[in-house]
Simulated scan of single mutants.
Amino acid sequence: METRHRLPTRTVLVAGGALLLVAFAVAASSGAYAISTGQLWGVLRDAWQGVASPSPEHLVFMNIRLPRLLLGVAAGCGLGMAGALMQGLFRNPLADPGLIGISSGAALAAGITIVMGAWLWPVLPRTLGSWTLVATAFCGGFAVTFLIYVLSRSEGGTRMALMLLAGIAVNALAGAGLGLLSVLATDEQLRSLQFWLLGSLGGARWSAVMLVGVVVALACAVALTLAPALNAMALGEPQARLLGIDVERVKRRAIVVTAFAVGAVTATTGVIGFIGLIAPHWVRMVAGPDHRIVLPASGLLGAALVLAADTVARTILAPAELPLGVLTAFIGVPMFLLMLRHYRNRL
């Protein structure tokens, strides 16, 4: 049997943290309004000292770029961690949070709100204001995930094969619904719908950063407590039960944690694909299958990948901006095909 050299835990986590810091620094200084390293250091020093500088770089960084970067960190961390959870739950390195319908459900709910919201629930905009789309998208993602979970229940347990098939069917149905909404939408609605479906950090604001940051932090904390159980379940569910693991409880918690994390991210940024697929896979390649390492390292790498992709998205055609989901797809699809080739004899 082929053995691979695995990096030590501390090395993996330090490397992930360093990669995130580099991605953050590059993203902070790049954009339509470039900020040099010296200017960035001055802005950070003034912010630390509580000095409100009127300089353009201070206003651009503190009011526009910083909330965008922090939202990207939270989004990437949540997606990477959720992908590691799903791969551990399905015991398959090709699994993705989208399998349980969170992203498609959120997208469908957002599409309904954009195209038909004024007719279906006219009271919500007056009650929730600008949070209407975020709230409906989150509820839609959670509702579809709950539906898939119910459909996967059989003989008092959750069957992962049934969950996979139910997820494929419900995702296809959500895609059909989005296609119908695209036909019914006006030009303005269609532009909003398409931009939201392709994902972006352009709408970042401090309230969204706080919401996603808190939800992702809590989700990551709960996910780390599931790491030993996921390690046991990698041996198979019967063996995990013999070791005293409540398998059904672990499944429920993992699904709920993933739904909250990815639902909050998708509701505020739109659909950002493939981060939850490639980040855990790359971590496993260098660190091995131990979820005590894979979960936190996947969060760090996911955050770094989102920041890097967003930097390219807002600089390659500056001052225009590419949708973030387009770049993650360009990266993720070739990676997925390579992974498919690597694991083809195991599927």
Rank of each mutant, 00 (worst) to 15 (best):
L19N: 08
L242P: 04
A287Q: 09
I331M: 15
A52I: 14
R314C: 09
W206S: 02
V14H: 12
P296L: 11
G156W: 08
M1C: 11
V134C: 07
L162K: 13
G332M: 10
G236Y: 14
T186E: 07
L327S: 03
A27Y: 07
E237D: 15
T269K: 06
A329I: 12
R346H: 13
W119I: 12
A240H: 08
W196N: 06
V257C: 03
G244V: 05
L322S: 09
H281T: 10
L301P: 01
D246V: 09
L70F: 04
I102M: 10
L79G: 00
H5D: 11
L165N: 00
L173Q: 03
Q49N: 14
L40P: 03
A185Q: 11
T225E: 05
V286N: 07
G236R: 03
L305F: 02
A47R: 15
L301N: 04
L180P: 04
S207T: 09
V43W: 02
G177K: 15
A27H: 13
T225S: 12
V115C: 04
L89C: 12
L301Q: 06
L85W: 00
L340A: 14
F195R: 15
G76W: 10
G50I: 01
A135F: 14
S53M: 04
L180K: 14
F90M: 02
G325E: 02
A223H: 12
A217T: 15
P56C: 09
L184V: 10
M116G: 11
L317N: 11
P238Y: 03
M116L: 15
N231V: 12
N92S: 07
L324C: 02
V73Q: 02
A304Y: 08
R241D: 04
L180N: 05
P125E: 00
N345A: 15
V123T: 14
E188Y: 12
D246A: 13
L337K: 11
L7V: 01
T158V: 12
E155R: 15
L184D: 05
G203H: 05
R241E: 14
L224S: 09
L324T: 09
I255T: 08
E188R: 15
A279P: 08
F138P: 01
D246T: 05
I331N: 06
L230Y: 07
F142V: 14
A174H: 00
P122Y: 13
L180S: 05
L165T: 00
I275V: 14
P289C: 09
G332T: 07
L230V: 10
A27S: 15
G101R: 00
L180H: 04
A254I: 01
F195I: 08
N63R: 15
L85K: 04
V271H: 11
T158I: 15
P334F: 10
L99G: 02
T9Q: 14
L198V: 07
F90Q: 02
G88I: 03
A320Q: 13
L235A: 12
N171M: 06
Y149S: 06
V22A: 14
R45G: 06
P228H: 11
L79V: 08
I331Q: 07
F24T: 12
A32R: 13
V115I: 08
L19D: 01
S104H: 04
L40T: 05
G105C: 03
A143D: 09
A304V: 10
L59Y: 08
G244W: 11
T3N: 13
L324H: 04
V222G: 13
L340R: 12
M335I: 09
A110K: 07
L133M: 12
L224T: 01
A329Q: 06
L327E: 00
A185F: 05
G156C: 12
